[in-house]
Design a protein around this nucleic acid. Structure first.
Length: 356
DNA sequence: AATCCGGGGTC
DNA sequence: GACCCAGGATT
């Protein structure tokens, strides 16, 4: 039997039930594919459910405030996905009358839709014979054909893409693409794949050569940078606080955080003289209390953030000049924030409750 | 071609 | 601690 038909046979017997497998609506397929980029099914599933509930159609998503989209996306990471998701929804609703592009080439022009996602949508929704090449496919193909070309190089990308095109099942593009990915996720796993019971074990080249656990080959990633974040949490008259939205390039674009003083190493002596701090204080009486003495290490793909939070209590009977950054403390939960900040907020408010 | 962009699961 | 996840955009 053909490679593709073996995979499809395996798939029909082993596939997991998922809500996006019960529809071919391009809006729902697109949404699921964006959510699942670099994200496990178990982690993405609740987000898919909340998004489809909050935004039943692309028009609902398009007319939402971007902040609401980011808030729903909170905790999923790679927040440019959420911003691109929203931009593309607006484009499709306003420019395309809500009708999704119906082929691979046109899908590729959408923000946040690359080669993988365009192939996934085109094959699932429109039965176009374009192969997906995701992390699962790299693993399955590199093992089955015993290919040691590094997958994260232009040469590797090209080689595996060409191989995937040859292997593509033109009769059942949808089933084949989902089959090879599901096969990679459940059967041909990164660690301890089930080669003994594998339906392809009579023809897998890596199994024959004994190289299964060495494939796929991936070049080393770059070094992780250490950064030192000192967050100042103003508590003004026990009522107000201050948050800012992160702009420009860098992590957490569009999300909110408390006033941040980034320092070299974990040196906190400079905080009291930092302009951001003195500006908040002005001549008002204040009290500053460290929330955590040991830095909280928040790990991102490329950065480790050594983080300390400082509660800055300010009492001032005079009327504050209305700052755009000043908000009611009790409203802090309504803003989209990174997990690091969200965890702090949770611990801070539970501490407030138990101590009062 | 290399780097950036999250958070969580697994071993 | 290292690696991975239904990748894409930017430089």
């Amino acid at each position: 039997m053909k490679f593709s038909k073996k995979l499809i046979t395996w798939y029909l017997q082993n596939k997991r039930a998922m809500p996006w497998r019960e529809t071919k609506n391009p809006y729902h397929i697109w949404l699921s594919e964006i959510i699942l980029q670099q994200t496990r099914v178990a982690q993405g599933l609740p987000y898919y459910l909340s998004f489809t509930k909050a935004f039943p159609t692309v028009f609902d998503l398009a007319k939402a405030e971007e902040e609401k989209v980011l808030k729903l996306w909170q905790g999923l990471g790679y927040y440019s996905r959420a911003r691109n998701l929203h931009a593309t929804a607006k484009y499709i609703a306003e420019e395309l009358n809500g009708v999704f592009p119906s082929n691979y080439k046109e899908l590729l022009t959408l923000k946040g839709v690359g080669d993988y996602t365009a192939s996934a949508i085109a094959s699932i929704c429109y039965n176009e014979a374009v192969p997906v090449v995701d992390g699962n496919v790299y693993r399955v193909l590199s093992r089955y054909f015993n290919i040691d070309t590094p997958i994260n190089t232009p040469k590797g990308v090209k080689e595996f893409k060409e191989l995937a095109i040859e292997l593509m099942d033109h009769e059942e593009p949808d089933a084949y693409n989902q089959a090879i990915m599901e096969f990679g996720a459940l059967q041909c796993k990164p660690k301890s794949p089930y080669c003994i019971i594998c339906p392809l074990n009579d023809s897998c080249m890596a199994l024959k050569k004994g190289t299964v656990d060495q494939l796929p080959v991936k070049l080393k990633k770059t070094k992780i940078k250490k950064r030192y974040f000192n967050y100042i949490i103003p508590v003004i008259n026990d009522t107000y606080t201050i948050i800012n939205q992160r702009t420009g390039n860098g992590i957490w674009q569009g999300l909110y955080e408390f006033p941040l003083i980034e320092s070299e190493k974990t040196d906190i002596d400079t905080i009291a003289s930092h302009s951001l701090f003195t500006k908040m204080i002005k001549d008002k009486p204040y009290d500053i209390i460290p929330h955590n003495n040991e830095p909280i290490v928040h790990k991102l793909s490329h950065q480790h953030l050594y983080t300390r939070f400082f509660i800055l209590k300010i009492d001032d009977e005079s009327v504050f000049e209305a700052s755009e950054e000043m908000i009611l403390m009790r409203d802090v939960h309504s803003y989209p924030v990174p997990i690091l900040i969200g965890n702090f907020i949770d611990s801070f408010f539970s501490k407030e409750l138990t101590s009062s």
